Computed example of a mutant assay.
Amino acid sequence: MPIDPKQKTKVYWKKNLQTLVVLLLIWFLVSFGCGILWVEELNSIQLGGFKLGFWFAQQGSIYVFVLLIFAYVYWMNRLDRKFDVDEE
């Protein structure tokens, strides 16, 4: 039995939004959590001569954000192939 195109679109966008929510939650935890909330605990650890909480606030959250962009591209390409909406 073929799947209704409207239902397929709803499922696709639901999965897309789930992916976005997970990635944004990770970004929030890293940038806000590690840079502000847990900075005192992280400052007891040194990374390259700098306190880890300071490092996350200044650079770490940017690195994680860039990695999350690549993760989003990878997961969305998989999702596009699964729902046959890829560009290839």
Rank of each mutant, 00 (worst) to 15 (best):
M1D: 06
M1T: 10
P2H: 09
P2M: 05
D4N: 09
D4K: 01
P5Y: 11
K6A: 13
K6Y: 10
Q7E: 15
K8C: 01
K10V: 04
K10N: 06
V11L: 14
V11P: 00
Y12R: 04
Y12M: 07
K14N: 09
K15C: 10
L17N: 00
L17Y: 02
L17A: 00
Q18I: 05
L20C: 09
V21L: 10
V22T: 13
L23Y: 03
L24G: 13
L24P: 01
L24W: 15
L24R: 02
I26Q: 04
I26K: 02
W27K: 03
W27Y: 13
V30M: 06
V30F: 13
S31P: 00
S31H: 08
S31W: 14
F32S: 04
F32Q: 04
F32C: 05
C34V: 05
G35E: 09
I36P: 03
L37D: 05
L37K: 05
W38T: 04
W38A: 07
V39E: 07
E40D: 10
E41P: 02
E41M: 05
E41Y: 11
L42R: 03
L42W: 02
N43C: 04
N43P: 00
S44A: 12
I45A: 06
I45R: 05
I45P: 02
Q46W: 10
L47E: 00
F50W: 08
L52F: 07
L52R: 02
G53N: 00
G53R: 00
W55P: 00
Q58N: 03
Q59T: 09
G60V: 05
G60C: 02
S61K: 09
S61C: 12
I62N: 06
Y63I: 13
V64C: 06
V64M: 07
V64Q: 04
V64Y: 02
V66Y: 12
V66E: 04
L68D: 04
L68V: 07
L68F: 06
I69C: 13
F70W: 14
A71M: 12
A71R: 07
A71F: 11
V73W: 12
Y74C: 04
M76Y: 09
N77H: 13
L79T: 03
L79Y: 04
L79R: 01
D80A: 14
K82Q: 15
K82F: 15
D84P: 07
V85E: 08
V85M: 12
D86W: 15
D86T: 08
